[in-house]
Design a protein around this nucleic acid. Sequence first.
DNA 1: GTGAAAGCGCTAACAA
DNA 2: TTGTTAGCGCTTTCAC
Lengths: 344, 344
Amino acid sequence: MSRIRQRAPLTGPSPTPTIKDVAAQAGVSTATVSRVLAGLDGVRPTLQERVHAAVHQLNYSPNRIARNLRIRRTRTVALVVSDIQNPFFTSVVGGIENALQQADYTLLLGNSDENLDREQLYLATLRAEGVVGIILAPTGARAEAYEHLHHTHLPMVVIDRCPPRLHADSVAVNNSAGAFAAVTHLARLGHRRIGCITGPQALRAHDLPVHPSLIRYADFRQPGGSTAMQALLELPEPPTAVFVGNNLMTLGALQTLHERGLQIPSDMAIVGFDDMAWASSLQPPLTAVVQPTYEVGTTAAHLLLARLNDPQRPLQHVVLDTRLMVRASCGAAVQAGITRHDLA
Amino acid sequence: MSRIRQRAPLTGPSPTPTIKDVAAQAGVSTATVSRVLAGLDGVRPTLQERVHAAVHQLNYSPNRIARNLRIRRTRTVALVVSDIQNPFFTSVVGGIENALQQADYTLLLGNSDENLDREQLYLATLRAEGVVGIILAPTGARAEAYEHLHHTHLPMVVIDRCPPRLHADSVAVNNSAGAFAAVTHLARLGHRRIGCITGPQALRAHDLPVHPSLIRYADFRQPGGSTAMQALLELPEPPTAVFVGNNLMTLGALQTLHERGLQIPSDMAIVGFDDMAWASSLQPPLTAVVQPTYEVGTTAAHLLLARLNDPQRPLQHVVLDTRLMVRASCGAAVQAGITRHDLA
DNA sequence: GTGAAAGCGCTAACAA
DNA sequence: TTGTTAGCGCTTTCAC
């Protein structure tokens, strides 16, 4: 029976050829093959050609695992995000992948799904996989949860939420400034009662020029935004404009407005957060605070690559600015009128 | 100078401890450590405890690279997608990641960006990285481009677009059936001139119960959908309803309708493709053909895992069905009226 | 300029 | 039950 499965010893090179096979085929030593493939000079052109020919004939591709073991270093970077399904990360991942691939690094992806245990598990696994650095979008955990990573001396850059006092490079978006710009914009348009729907941890909503009674805290999800908008509408004196602090909650808020048959922006002006593809297809098109998501990704990758090149360089904390994309939902078209009137 | 950088030989275990360090610390051989960590029985409990203690003390984590080299097999799977930024893939990646992580595999991610060269480069790199299987969302290339993969004997499952005659497991979505359902739905609602905006390769649009003159081919992107809709509106007899074959083109089509001040669904009924979070926040909420994207991911992962367990199993081609999510943009509310009228 | 040989950290056959 | 040892495929001294 088993004889059927035995490989004939004279079959020649193994199914996946090794450097030995190449060396034999080219009539040189494995050392020479290694040199040629590494592009080191000091190898006679004749031999170089023989090696290349053999490589080609055997369709040889060096075993990275063996190489990594030998040089005790990989070219692999880990990315652990807190929610791969969130459109914010889609774009971030795109930016990271692009930057890394250009630098000839490969990307190991993990999704913690906002679950701290899963995140820690990933961090451990990836260390064992020999990743040479980590880009982490932390779950809500505090800095202490990541302290143990220092002992591994694994370069890490943290994105999106950056736990204070965490000893790592970071890149974040200046969300509060974005929120401030949005609310200010609405104020300039003449609104005096501006509502605000924001996340649970609240981007320091109290710093905003908004009356506290008009602030609602929700959970960053669509239903939360919907409920919060309902609450605002049921106020004795509802706001005339509202700023919503993230993309999904914006969708919820819109849903509520539509259900109630309210006109945007005349009945309620609205400014959202995160510019998504659909923002300009809404009726009216949505004015929004735009986060440079792709750049968050590329910046994070570059920070990591820089640290790999120079582990001693000082920590760097990059904060990227948002941009206010003015469309129609804030009633900006009306502004000209108001302003002229005011001036008159 | 260099003396400063030299590590004292008596420092004890290296910064990242190896199995040797653990063995020494526990006073056993490396073989025993390996056995204990592999959970093999036949090791005296005393020793087991000593090993575990040492592991804990040294914060040891086995080097996967060395292990992989030794057992000549990794637990890594590669995913190469054609456009990581596309929301369709966001969800697919989520499904794959989840299924793989449950089976204790790690995921290597590549983004070909619809670029065949980059795709082939990735496929080569990943083979060298010792991935044990590949999930591929191919660029537009034909089957021949992937023929050489067979020689590597690397299990592969193809998703989304499946080149005919490619010898691989696959999972696809029955888009034509979805399109058919959408158009039929519109027809049932009483529409006689139904337009169709579809992709370049066209999901066999000619099979649809739609007049060929009302079909427009675009590029799956937002501007394309916008232009196509304009073209339909400029027809001497424009359609009264339109089916749009993907999410981004739907956004474009909506944009055009809004710009022209046309009412949905009275002036133009519309059914889109892909159910995105925003679909229900549109005014009116969008009726859409829903793809089971997350399930595409989990199914692909499971097909791959199954093949890893049994390389000889017959090829399997899974086709998942779409679902028609009826909201208001198709004018379904009107239907009751029409139907009753018809019956009367 | 080239090859022989050691060894990266681990597992598994074999010996004891 | 436990230890000794060979070797996975590669890179890199070191000697020629």
